[in-house]
Design a protein around this nucleic acid. Sequence first.
DNA 1: TTGTAGGCGTTATCAG
DNA 2: CTGATAACGCCTACAA
Lengths: 336, 336
Amino acid sequence: MENKKKITITDVADKAGVSKSTVSQYLNKRYQYMSSETKNKIAKVIEELNFRPNDNARNLKVKKTKVVGIVLANLLHHLSTEIVRVVEERLQSHEIKVFICNSDDSPEKESDYIDLLISKQVDGIIIFPVGNDPKVYNYVISYGIPLVFIDRIVDGVTTDCILLDNKAACRLAVSQLQNKGHENIAFLTLPTDIPVSTRRERIEGFKEAMSFYQLEVQENNVFSVPREEIQGVLEQRFLQENKPTAIVAGNDLVLREVLSFINKVSLSMPNDLALVSIDEVTYSNLYNPSITTVNQPVKEMGEKTADILLDRINGKTDDPFRVYRFAPELIIRGSC
Amino acid sequence: MENKKKITITDVADKAGVSKSTVSQYLNKRYQYMSSETKNKIAKVIEELNFRPNDNARNLKVKKTKVVGIVLANLLHHLSTEIVRVVEERLQSHEIKVFICNSDDSPEKESDYIDLLISKQVDGIIIFPVGNDPKVYNYVISYGIPLVFIDRIVDGVTTDCILLDNKAACRLAVSQLQNKGHENIAFLTLPTDIPVSTRRERIEGFKEAMSFYQLEVQENNVFSVPREEIQGVLEQRFLQENKPTAIVAGNDLVLREVLSFINKVSLSMPNDLALVSIDEVTYSNLYNPSITTVNQPVKEMGEKTADILLDRINGKTDDPFRVYRFAPELIIRGSC
DNA sequence: TTGTAGGCGTTATCAG
DNA sequence: CTGATAACGCCTACAA
């Protein structure tokens, strides 16, 4: 189990009785310039020695690494990982591998991983951004590495962005509820003090949708509070007059809290309270009653991300950067 | 937005009016050999030029990369990602970064990613294995890269393994059910034709636990079928005599199917049917009724994984490789 | 305290 | 078809 000296292309060349160059030719599949005899010989030696070329050395000469880095805000966020899967599949089919990094909602970690990916010379970077310092991201761009944002926009950074049409999502949610006769609708989301474009868009979208359907937005029905306070504010709200008859949960974390609240006070859906959640969750079909959700088109978004990135990497496009908005889809289930 | 020539240590040296070596010293924080004047000058130039050292070149000389690769079987599997988070946190505190790769339950992809990680010269590799060809894994070891398996064992590979004590998990599940007076207990798991040690261990564990509690294992109560067949076999089974009064779900995927079945035929838990699931799921507390689960000690397992790997990487141990079994924990909730 | 020279493992160029 | 040889960007003696 000694940590033996790593074997190199030179070892292979020596043992095969050819030169390094020839082995290199072999590694790069330039078989044309090679007798099938030497070819086989090299193959055998590589097998025997269990040789693997050192990519670091290779990338010193060759500019492309065929690796793309994805920096995830949160590994546990199901939507992100689903998009990643789609992106990865698409990139794989172009022979590109993916390294996933987890920023764990920390701008510092995110920045560290971006630096690492740059120093590894990856061909492209995809970020679910958590930070709000444009400098970090702009450096990637100025370094010449194609960059795509998913899920959020960062002020001051001009690059391709893949986003849900959040306002349309709210409109779908509200439309479904007002269809069912609800007028007193509450909206809950996490705090918007940090510049997370998504949350702000959803609040605005909710308000716009309400007025679109000529419903009144009661100010004590719109909440933007930290996760751990959600149950508290709901309990309070439901002690007041004029209880909401329906709730729109601004994302999956909010949904969890809302469901806990509903369980705790034994409300029954959809009669006591109707519910629509933005973003799919794993248990929407399983839950009793099943949960109506507004879903992101994961497949389309992932594929678009991969395609844009590929085009930029291969220099196939000089189109100006733009924001791609994807239409949400309403999945009507039992909760409303 | 031209893809400008990447700037190198030479550019920095030139612009700062010092030599490459001095810049290198700076990069490696050897400030002792440097006037604070030159130090500041270099810092400024690096900032201005937005220089980032090329890790590939660096790693050619320096053996440690300070990067560990994790190959995940399935990004969407919550348990895995939770363990990854713990591992990562631990490794971060030792200045080690983590690249996550998704094998997507494909042995080929897994093998490709292992090769990639090797050629990137990572310091260590952690795998949630999906393949069963020892060669792939043994190559990592023979290459001198420390390797840790999580969740499964692979026949023919001798290395450190982090596993749940699966038999104990089944014993906990059965004990809880027999406590509640159940005797006719069914067990469901996915197929065991591929050599996935975990599934086999859980089936055996179930049988042993039953006999330990002097309960009879009815052969038509033990299922090992593909996911898409689970609901079908349950429907059939519940048409027969002697219906089970309780079910143990062998993992989270099985649980989903069982819950769908229960919903479809409108059984009520825990009265019509009691349920215990092995492995935690995100919705266990939210569900109605909440779901009793046998949990893996994610934190301990993740930390142990990181610690073992760190010790191996730093050559701090020559202990023989071993299998670490972790005690599961029963979380009693409403489903039984 | 700074500079020079050589090497890390691979690829590319160009003779042979 | 094969083999020298010079990069690639950085690090590390050792010399100045």
